[in-house]
Amino acid sequence: MSGLLRRREVVSELLAPRGDALVIAGLGAPAWDITNAGDHELNFPLWGAMGGAAMIGLGLALAQPKKKVLVFTGDGEMLMGLGALATIAVQAPRNLYIVVLDNERYGETGMQETHTAHGVDLAGMARAAGFAQTLVVRTESGVSRLKKAIYAGEGTLFAQIKVDPQKLPLVLPPRDGCLLKNRFRAAVLGPQAAQQ
């Protein structure tokens, strides 16, 4: 036992209950994590587009300012789109919460180390970009504080959760992008989704 947080437990805890939160997940493990917590019409898990998860969250948060938008992604995915931290901090939507599950590894490709294994401070980068709130979470009590910050507080928030680099069985969401998009829009917009 590493003593590190376990990603599936953390994600399940942060999504129970989730209310009407809109959830984006970066490709790979974060997509399996949110699906493990329960496939949901208001989930949009990615199967590709690496580096894009946080920006999808931004576009969604601007379009739906009354809903909370949660982006779960990994350290490798976030590192590929670091410029998004600057773009998001300038827009500063108060309903956007970015949660990086940081196992310091590229988990899908053989557990190669990412830069966070070598001291790169993602939360520090988000803070320097201008995020209103940044947290590094290492404990269960930290997860509870993060959950409160998400559901009782306002963004723009960036949380980096240090998690165990465990290899876990995949829990696959639907992989038809049109299905994922259409069910998400129908759940958010109702019947007018098909008329836009």
């Binding site: 580096g51 920006m55 931004l58 576009g59 948060a61 379009a63 773009t87 300038v90 829009r185 958010v188």
Partner: peptide, 24 residues
Amino acid sequence: RVVRLTTEEEGVALLAGAWLGGEK
């Protein structure tokens, strides 16, 4: 809403999110 990007690919992802939320 004008969204300045650091690189153009951010815009591709941004506008996917916008459409998910019903905006063009």
